[in-house]
Amino acid sequence: MYRLVIFLLLFGIWIIFSGQFDYFHLSLGLISCGIITAISSSFFFSNRSKSFGTRLGELMRLPGYSFWLLWQIILSNVHILKMALTPGEIKELDPSLVRIKTNLKTDFGKYALANSITLTPGTITIEIDGDEMLIHSISKHTAKGVKDDTMERKVARVFEGGGQ
């Protein structure tokens, strides 16, 4: 089942990249995607105990999360822009290190949370150590903001089935 999904995914990417629809190119694509699926299908989807319905649910919830993330990215850029174009001394700049704990279990969930923290205003994840994260925050205000766990709940709802 997973092999079929991987094969279809690879073949879709092949069609987008080759852009040719004659029999020669399509058969080349079929052969190479088949070889890659046979050799390295164990690289994708490391946790195969999840049912197919859960995966579908994750896929359905992903767009809402990414639109929210996109909005956060734009907010963080406005923040950087405002800070960079302040004339004279930059008053808001007050960097500090913050340490938070997460309740996320899976590696992919932690990865998604770290990337989301990096993309939201004023914070960058430096290190993930077990269930603790070290965060560099650019001002006092954002250091306070990172401590509340709205984002963590959002990530948990998308990638871990809302088990929080």
Binding site: S76, N77, I80, L119
Partner: peptide, 11 residues
């Protein structure tokens, strides 16, 4: 790094 990572991605 804040400026580089964020400004780069969004622009």
């Amino acid at each position: 790094m804040h400026a580089a990572g964020k400004g780069d991605t969004c622009s």
